[in-house]
């Protein structure tokens, strides 16, 4: 109850921190380059005819959808946690009667609308104008985008929180964060649609679907860009919900074990 009552203030403070540095804030809003590079690359591949089943405008729709989902679900809390643990700043968070899982989570969530304040509306307009035919027309699917994006965000946050907690054991854990981001890039559909990857590397793609990465990006993008039957929509959301629950449990377990190793350096 105490945590619930604190939510609005935590949110407000998170927003205030996000916009404290105006220049940095504007740079954040504009840094969304990888999906745009991929968009240019894949549309040129498909310029003379569809590649696999993707036409040039399918790629436009896909990567604009990737941009939107990425903007709304990205997390960077692992990096902040590494720093907080390494420098002992975490001590001050631990003295507050609120689990850092909540405190970090709300500060991350509070930043999202601002970080995506430009990229998401622009992408949505572009998507509606140049990729309209490739967007789903299924009302249920469009409605399900909201829980799907929320679940993708929870999975991303949970995994980031678990990785950040590795900082309790490893002083310079940034490399682990780097490995995570590389895997995310390769296995989530960030660089290419997983359907294209499946045609070239079927086994790898099957394995990919056994990881949380598609739930963080490919599934919400699929919901936005493909017309799916209701059972398939339910299956996609169920996969996401399972990974969301799993990532929270893993995050809290790693945190609990790691906290015993916290050395609270400094002071």
């Amino acid at each position: 109850m105490r945590t619930l009552r604190a939510l609005p203030t935590l949110w407000r403070i998170g927003v205030a921190e996000t916009i404290a540095y105006r220049a940095e804030f504007i740079v954040w809003m504009l840094t969304t380059t990888i999906p745009l590079i991929m968009l240019a690359l894949w549309t040129s591949v498909a310029s003379e005819g569809p590649f696999q089943s993707y036409s040039s405008s399918d790629f436009v729709a896909y990567f604009l959808a990737v941009l939107i989902v990425r903007q709304l679900t990205s997390n960077w809390i692992a990096w902040q946690m590494f720093e907080d643990i390494r420098l002992g700043v975490l001590s001050m968070r631990l003295l507050r009667p609120i689990h850092p899982f909540w405190a970090y989570g709300i500060s991350q969530a509070a930043a999202l609308p601002f970080r995506s304040a430009i990229a998401v509306p622009v992408s949505l307009i572009l998507l509606a104008s140049s990729g309209a035919h490739a967007i789903t027309t299924n009302a249920l699917q469009i409605a399900m985008m909201i829980p799907s994006l929320a679940l993708a965000w929870v999975i991303s946050f949970g995994i980031n929180f678990a990785i950040g907690s590795i900082g309790f054991w490893v002083t310079q854990a940034f490399a682990i964060g780097g490995v995570y981001f590389t895997l995310y890039t390769l296995l989530s559909g960030y660089l290419m649609p997983l359907a294209i990857m499946a045609s070239k590397y079927p086994t790898l793609t099957k394995l990919t679907w056994a990881t949380p990465f598609p739930s963080m990006l490919a599934i919400p993008v699929r919901l936005l860009t493909r017309n799916l039957a209701t059972p398939e929509i339910a299956r996609m959301l169920a996969i996401q919900a399972a990974w969301a629950a799993g990532s929270i449990l893993i995050a809290l377990a790693v945190w609990r074990r790691g906290l015993k190793h916290f050395e609270a350096v400094g002071g």
Partner: peptide, 9 residues
Amino acid sequence: YALNRAVFD
């Protein structure tokens, strides 16, 4: 202070 007021209830 506002943050502490909220989390310490």
